[in-house]
């Protein structure tokens, strides 16, 4: 069995896949990778299906030694260094790691969550159909725990085919985060909605996989702040009595009793989760049809990244690369910090 021996990692290191679906009716939230685009891109670079289990890092990276190798690895998401035996792997490129070699993921230089995919996925046991670690439910992960130094992570398979590089980089939108108002926008006054859509908010220090509490101008309720509990989705923005919004994320509860003013569209969530405490942001309302159109656009973007995968060493399709970089309104998700900060809302 091929495996990764964990030498070191940050406290927020867990196993995540595309999430656990079908059990929200029993109170089991979906968990899954915070940055879904990062999971899909890292997996495609190592030749996996899009939703395979990978290692998710929160700001801090980690160090691993391959045993019983070889393993193919790739890093995506927040901008961080990936090194094999101390040698840097170019961004958006997979690399084969031999038995006994080390894999090191540096700290995030911008953004919050990195995803390290391995060939065949991290082959821990599934819980209710998913390997995603969910802290409060005690499900998934490495024996229902986060990744810790000393653990041995089973790797799905040896590499098949060549290492790959993405000649078309993944892109995320920039600017205000797009929301669809509702489901309980009628629990807020016109002034409250205007505040939410007109003012700037910052990610507070209370930010984790469950949700990000934002700080900023108080949003006025129209008829109290208690509803009879109903369902929550990833990206729901609930506003408790304090009037400051909380964006509920992958490890969220399934139901709640605070009114929800709006929901961040799925296409903008990968950029939202990469915001760090202190980041300033604005929200802009779009229609449901516009939200669905953005989801289609993002699926098409991922398809073009996949189509642009080339074996390492065969050279870049420079002309194509230049053409996509000239598209307005997008930022390269993997531009180094010299460029506008990664996933920045500014």
């Amino acid at each position: 069995m091929i495996r990764l021996l964990v030498k070191d990692c940050g406290a927020g290191t867990t196993i995540q896949d595309s999430g656990r679906f079908g059990f929200q009716r029993y109170g089991v939230g979906p968990a899954g990778a915070m940055d879904r685009i990062a999971l899909v891109v890292a997996n495609m670079l190592v030749g996996n299906a899009a939703g395979e289990a990978a290692i998710e890092f929160t700001v801090l990276g980690g160090a691993f030694v391959v045993e019983g190798g070889p393993v193919r690895v790739a890093l995506a998401g927040a901008y961080a260094d990936l090194k094999i035996d101390g040698e840097a792997v170019p961004p958006l490129t997979s690399a084969t790691v031999l038995d006994g070699q080390s894999v090191t993921v540096g700290a995030a230089k911008a953004g919050t969550f990195m995803v390290l995919a391995v060939s065949g996925g991290i082959a821990v046991k599934t819980d209710l159909g998913s390997r995603s670690f969910h802290l409060r439910g005690g499900l998934g992960g490495v024996d229902r725990a986060p990744v810790r130094p000393g653990q041995v992570l089973p790797v799905g398979s040896a590499p098949h085919g060549p290492d790959l590089t993405a000649t078309v980089p993944p892109k995320v939108s920039s600017g205000a985060f797009r929301v669809v108002l509702g489901p309980q926008d009628d629990y807020f006054s016109d002034a409250g909605i205007a505040t939410f859509l007109g003012e700037a908010y910052r990610v507070s220090a209370e930010a984790d996989r469950m949700g990000y509490r934002l700080s900023g101008p108080v949003i006025e309720h129209a008829k109290g702040f208690n509803i009879v509990s109903d369902g929550i989705v990833t990206g729901s923005i609930q506003v408790p009595g304090s009037g400051e919004p909380i964006v509920l994320l992958a490890d969220r509860q399934t139901t709640g009793g605070y009114p929800k003013i709006a929901t961040i569209i799925s296409a903008d969530l990968p950029r939202f989760v990469q915001q760090r405490p202190g980041s300033e942001m604005r929200f802009a309302a779009v229609t449901l049809a516009e939200g669905i159109a953005a989801a289609r656009e993002q699926a098409a973007m991922l398809a073009s990244v996949r189509a642009g995968l080339k074996p390492v060493g065969l050279g870049f399709d420079t002309e194509h690369l230049l053409s996509v970089n000239l598209v307005d309104g997008w930022v390269d998700a993997h531009a180094p910090p010299a460029e506008p900060p990664l996933h920045s809302a500014a």
């Binding site: 079908g22 009879v228 109903d230 799925s266």
Partner: peptide
């Protein structure tokens, strides 16, 4: 339709936006 979640007073329907015809 991916999954549904019945509550006291409503049913949350989780959908795939690329497939669902609202």
């Amino acid at each position: 339709v991916i999954e549904t979640l019945p509550t006291y007073r409503s049913v949350l329907v989780q959908v795939d936006p690329l497939v669902i015809d609202m």
